[in-house]
Design a protein around this nucleic acid. Sequence first.
DNA 1: ATAGGCTAGGAAATCGATTGCCTAGACGCT
DNA 2: AGCGTCTAGGCAATCGATTTCCTAGCCTAT
Lengths: 358, 358
Amino acid sequence: MSRASYRPITQGPSARPETWEETLSSVERAVTISQVAALAGVSTGTASKALNGRGALRPETRLRVQQAAERLGFVANAAARSLQTGRTYTVGMITTDSIGRFSIPLLIGAEDALGAGQMSVFLCDARDDPIREQYYLKTLLSRKVDGIIVTGRRTLARAPIGVRLPVPVVYAFISSADPDDCSVVPDEADGARRAIRHLLAIGRRRIAHVTGPEHHHSATIRASAAADALAAEGLTSAAPTLYGEWSEAWGRQAAGILLSTGADVDAVFCGSDQIARGLAEALRDAGRVIPRDVALVGFDNWDVMVEGCRPALTSVDMDLEGIGRTAAELLLQTINGDPVRGQHARPCRLVPRASTAV
Amino acid sequence: MSRASYRPITQGPSARPETWEETLSSVERAVTISQVAALAGVSTGTASKALNGRGALRPETRLRVQQAAERLGFVANAAARSLQTGRTYTVGMITTDSIGRFSIPLLIGAEDALGAGQMSVFLCDARDDPIREQYYLKTLLSRKVDGIIVTGRRTLARAPIGVRLPVPVVYAFISSADPDDCSVVPDEADGARRAIRHLLAIGRRRIAHVTGPEHHHSATIRASAAADALAAEGLTSAAPTLYGEWSEAWGRQAAGILLSTGADVDAVFCGSDQIARGLAEALRDAGRVIPRDVALVGFDNWDVMVEGCRPALTSVDMDLEGIGRTAAELLLQTINGDPVRGQHARPCRLVPRASTAV
DNA sequence: ATAGGCTAGGAAATCGATTGCCTAGACGCT
DNA sequence: AGCGTCTAGGCAATCGATTTCCTAGCCTAT
């Protein structure tokens, strides 16, 4: 626990230094614009104009101010600026569930797009706790962020984080239950279709589907899209969809089920890379050769899984980084006065590897 | 790309709404403390005191102000507050390399400790680019953060991010080359010793070590600590340390080397869980039974790896979340006037699983 | 020579909250 | 009754930067 010791600093000058600044050999007081102005021999107003390229100033004066700022190492106080301008050049990012494997690419993508717009990101980890979520929302509003991005693992559309908020909100990966809110999500059905079409293209016809829990939105939507894609070719699934968990263990177990029921499959589309990897292992142990006997497609394109799998795993990539970037871009657009509404589904990408190389 | 359309808003009232706020049916202007004060029938100063529990006020007045604030949904403007108080209740977190698997637990731990202190985190991803790093540093300083946490994948001590900064800095996971700076790092030697002692405790004597690249600080320090731990028992390594990559592929390859050289090993301590998992797979394929023939210990305790491994992998946990938490706590302590200096090494923890269960 | 226009830069209000100082009025004591 | 004390709460300065006026001085044109 941090010792929250707000000790008084009213001790003799010889006392042990008590605050951070006192411990510096020479105290580094923050440089203000008035100091810059004084050094350049102008007023603060003029200094401000010089540094922000506003107003009518002689180029020579402008330069003098800039050099003074440079020499003093002046950095404008963001609080003072935003108090005046109303803009903070800051956005909040609330992750509904804990920060995890899926949040990172989203975060990186968003950070990428926002950094280009010179904006900083407040990261808030709500940990699936509505109380924490509302607390963070309040904090972000008090900090007067210019906008908010809400992310979370995708199960179902979530309740809007707030109504009639004074700042724009964009949902990334997860979507808002209010169709009027702006959400950016992966088109998972598209991903499933790409997987099936890829398997069909390499000549497979007896295709099974093994995926996560049936109550998980991603599992059901991928399953039904896969079934539709097969139906479009006049085919049906080589076995009933196997619902389980998003784990390697379940993949291994599912392989056992497929083998024992004697289902004659020549390909399996898996709901996640972990499931696919488990399946691959168990199939190999059973003497099946991948992809000769059974071709395999995963979902997520998670580097350590697709590369660790033997053979390397073909997988569907949801482009989470792109989703994060798009969400941030739409947020910026909204902030800049061109509001964006509605749900935006982004296509997936199939990354072929050895597990489907014929 | 975001259309950075800073359009003028000087159009007739009938024009299409151009800014975010105009698109709200009723504009939600932020509530200020003067509005609260007016509603409560007091001055702004009094309102401030009432809401912050300061000054001498009648309980009844205090309550009246609080109720007014509640009714209006008042949230204090953080910029105005910090302009006055000098505190922002914000810290910056700069990740030297990109946000990745190691950063997340650090981030969560830090967020945990800071959130408890009501502080928010600015996340900055420097992506191994010194320019970006300095840019972010400047941004954080302009935002007057109360402190900075610097993290990054651990190779060697890094150059201090800045000298004589006006705010305290704590390095987490990575350490600063200046021994006077405050760094919180895992005691990797301790982790290696625990691994070896555990293997010795279950009766193994012919222990090999397979790890990452020799130029990687973590690899060499773990290797030498392991050798020392063996020497302490009068033993030597069963085979020369095998340096390679931090990957499953290298683990598989290393297994081949150990098997082909006929080294008679009954245990392998691996520099990472990925290496261990690769090794486990290859050993199994070669007919070796784990842990009966060969016991296995990994490093990192990365959930998906230790659980995906067959059998489940015993591993050394560096407690990254604890490191993040500690770093944040030391930072808070320093901010609160009780400066902390020097390098703090935190012990590791061995998590035994089936791969060493005798 | 003088009015008008233009330019460069200064003065001061402003953003919203905090806080030190001050005072009106209540109260108690002699 | 008069004086001192204490309490509750108001007033106004303050933080640092931006921005809107405003003006001194110069130039030009008639």
